[in-house]
Design a protein around this nucleic acid. Structure first.
Lengths: 241, 241
DNA sequence: GCTGGCAGTTGACATTTATCAATCGAATGC
DNA sequence: GCATTCGATTGATAAATGTCAACTGCCAGC
């Protein structure tokens, strides 16, 4: 297996390698240690709709999404919810890897995706001897933690209409701040991420019309920024992402 | 201020010090580094209902609750919700400290509490030179992260009745597993933690009566363990705490 | 042993959200 | 070009949850 691993790794284009090296997680670590991680890892292409990991399974690899997109989701009692969307270039399930604990979420590709896998064991080994890397992992974990806390506040303190309004404002900002932008996920996934049904999302979009939100397919136009912000009341302690 | 700090620190009873030393977070670190942290820190007693930290403020200290209990809560738009209850001996707002970022939650004492405060700056300094400590922080952070993820799953995948049922099962287990146990917080706080109103919690308790839950004040008796578990469907990927 | 205050409960009602079924509409395949 | 499929929408309805007001019961303080 290690042989296969190396073969695949050798096939990794330099562009990807340097992109990974520049990730906050790796940028400050010793070159030798980085090489050690890369040698142990491998890169693979996945088609859309492939379940990469299943909640409850042991966490053998830290995953790094190089291109494409991945849905993190969870199930219980025949219900399912989208927890987050991973976009390149970033890691996912870091917490499970460092704790050597079972995954709490499942992951599936949304589109064709290129993913680097670092064996959790190697991750922990390098972690133990590279303080810069340790620092970076702490930073990344703390950021993830804060992200989930913000999400919890969003869920507990806001109605679904308010969550949608703030989501649109965040997405608008990420898209450059223009009045018109395009939703980056299916509406039913968006509904699940926001903790509602897709029917309810449809109605929520209508409910935002009085505040200056126009919807045409997946294209959103905010015709009255002030009104929308007045309703959404965005807050850096919840919404800054 | 440092003088005051040291004075207070010197007044810390050894029992507390060794208890802190045995905390997972500190147990493996160099003695010298531990001493450095302790010298920089101070310990203080707070009466009940004191707001220790306010969300949005810069995070100057890592807090360690030595005795008493603390409520972590958040507000938005005139609404408020309890995010978690901190019980001794454990840390809180670690993520904000290591990131040097503003608090995302406020904290108030629920009862008379003894709290140790470690300046975030010292924390980060020692962190940079003690790999064991770094390791422990990563572990703690990862655990916190996983806790919040579980909470999010609880909120998004379960109804309030199901959340209450599972909460009772968890609390029962923590209390030793007997059929009768006592709730460890006010019902209105419990309601807020579970993401519901206190009126709704009252009705939820009634709704669990058919599954063998008897309520007398804050004393709960589970008369039919099987029925309750059959309804609650507890799951280690959500409920193990 | 009153009595005021307060957490908790209850009932009536409003709002929010989910469910189910039907339909629309754009994209896909033959 | 037409049928099929699937996501999205809509309407009707049900269920869950929140709100408001009144009331209960217990405890603390005089």
């Amino acid at each position: 297996m290690r042989t296969y691993t190396q073969l695949v790794t050798l096939g990794m284009p330099d562009s990807h390698l340097s992109e990974i090296r520049d990730l906050h997680l790796f940028s400050d670590m010793e070159d030798e240690h980085f090489q050690q991680l890369v040698r142990a890892s491998y890169v693979q292409n996945f088609p859309p709709q492939i379940e990469l990991i299943t909640e409850g399974d042991p966490s053998d690899f830290l995953h790094i999404l190089l291109s494409g997109s991945v849905d993190l989701f969870s199930s219980w009692n025949a219900r399912e919810t989208s927890m987050a969307t991973v976009r390149p270039v970033s890691t996912f399930i870091l917490a499970a890897s460092v704790r050597d604990a079972p995954y709490l979420m499942s992951a599936r590709t949304l589109e064709k995706s290129r993913i680097m896998l670092i064996p959790s064991q190697d991750l922990r080994e390098v972690f133990g001897k590279d303080i810069q890397f340790a620092q970076a992992i702490v930073d990344e974990l703390a950021q993830c933690y804060r992200g989930v806390i913000k999400n919890t506040k969003d869920l507990k303190l806001r109605t679904s209409l308010e969550r949608l309004a703030n989501h649109l404002l965040r997405q608008q900002a990420r898209a450059g701040g223009g009045a018109t932008f395009v939703l980056d996920s299916e509406k039913r996934r968006l509904a699940s991420v926001l903790g509602m049904t897709s029917e309810n999302l449809s109605r929520a979009f209508k409910g935002l019309r009085p505040y200056g939100v126009e919807v045409k397919g997946s294209q959103i136009t905010i015709t009255n920024q002030q009104d929308l912000e007045g309703f959404a009341k965005p807050n850096p302690l919840i919404d800054h992402r």
